[in-house]
Amino acid sequence: MRLVKPRYQEMTDESLMVAISKGDKRAFDEIYHRYSGPLLGYFMRMLWRDREKAEDFVHDIFAKIIRKPELFDPKRTFKTWLYSVANNMCKNEYKKQEVRKNTSNGLDENYAVEDHNSNVLSEVADNQFRDQFEQSLEDLDKKHSEVFRLRHLDGLSIKEIADILDISDGTVKSRLFYATKYLASSLEAFNPVLNR
């Protein structure tokens, strides 16, 4: 019996994972509370803003945590491990989409997988800078945009991104600066906005 009850909010992700592996429901709730929102945003950005698909992916990644918590490598930080799993899930999805595209039988290839239920975009529709920014990110090739997104939208450090994508710190920096230069040139018209 514990003398002092654990305060889940103060526990580290790694210790919460240990508790989850022992069947602690409250530890799982805490982990879900910490990462479900950021992961949903990440999946939405990576999966063509398809909210339904992103929801399914969030479910799947947490289902993995429930079913096989031992998959977590304690040598890595939980956040890094979680995002690397999410990144691999997205890669698999890209492959699936690629196969479907190649085997499509007359369906419109430009079918937009948009989330019509979400009003996130409509809320910022009047923000031209944001629209342009999003568009520029979309135009970037995937390896550059994903590094930029992980750094600026998900708040991960260069070291963490390197760990997630299994590349060197130098490569992360290089991709990050390339993406930044590209964005800077495409958003040049919004200099007053940038300089506010």
């Binding site: 939405m44 979400s118 939208l153 600066f177 930044t180 230069k181 940038l194």
Partner: peptide
């Protein structure tokens, strides 16, 4: 130029949607 982009992105508020 790069600094402006970083600061501009940092100032943008990103919505973190919550799962259903």
């Amino acid at each position: 130029q790069m600094r402006d982009v970083f600061i501009g992105v940092e100032q943008m508020t990103w919505d973190h949607p919550q799962p259903k």
